Computed example of a mutant assay.
Amino acid sequence: MNYSTISSALASQSYDKIADICDNLMLQVAAEGVSYQDEWPYAIHLLGHIYVDDINSARFIWKSIPSSIKENKLEVVAAWKIGQKLWTRDYGGVHEAIRGFDWSQELNGLVAAYSELYTKKMFQLLLSAYSTISIQDTAVFLGMTEDDATSYVLQQGWAVDPASRMLTVKKQPIVTEQKVDPGKLQRLTEYVFHLEH
């Protein structure tokens, strides 16, 4: 079986395309009636769906994996552990699952890219959900030590109260659309028309 498209996507760091590539390849192979289960890159397929935040599809793939693969391929189990933590909204557990396995050279880049993406997503969640939050909770959400988490959010303009060990979230400015007054628009149109004629 030729997995060159998957290898190319990994090599070019096109991680957002891996889930679709794997899905299409799996359909193609199934249509040809070829048995692929023993050699299918399940860990890549799972992580591809996790990367694009498609946990339902990752869960479906996990359920379709033969038990012999689940018992013998530790990296497949490790990939699904990330999916499980996402499924149960164990935000800190996602970081633990990522760090808790020695990923193969082939998957190291994908996992590292997902870790960075997930940290940014958690930061955005904190930004939208909190006005103040403890350093300890922030560290759990971001998957960092308390010192690293504090440093990270301070760089984003947050403030820290060392006495209470609380962080004050710096909200991003809300961009509002300006409404155009129809009367002004009409006058502008008439002015431009007048200039042209």
Rank of each mutant, 00 (worst) to 15 (best):
V160L: 15
E177A: 10
R165I: 01
A159N: 14
K171P: 04
K184R: 06
K170P: 05
V160H: 14
W158M: 12
L154S: 12
K184L: 10
T176H: 14
R165T: 07
L154F: 12
K171F: 03
L154E: 14
P182N: 03
V180K: 05
D181E: 01
V180F: 07
T168E: 08
V169T: 05
K184E: 08
V180S: 08
Q155P: 04
Q178I: 13
P162Y: 04
I174Y: 10
P173D: 09
P162N: 07
D161M: 08
T176P: 00
K184M: 05
I174P: 00
K171G: 04
L167C: 06
P173L: 08
L185N: 02
A159P: 00
Q178T: 11
D181F: 02
K179L: 06
E177L: 13
G157A: 09
W158C: 15
T176D: 08
P182Q: 02
K170N: 06
V180T: 13
A159T: 15
Q172C: 02
I174R: 12
L154Y: 11
L185K: 09
V175S: 11
K179H: 04
L167I: 07
V175A: 10
Q155F: 06
P173Y: 01
P173A: 10
P182E: 03
T176R: 14
L185S: 06
M166N: 03
P162M: 06
A159I: 10
R165V: 05
D161K: 11
S164C: 07
P182F: 02
M166R: 06
Q178M: 09
T168Y: 03
L154D: 09
V175W: 03
A163S: 13
W158E: 05
L154A: 10
T168V: 10
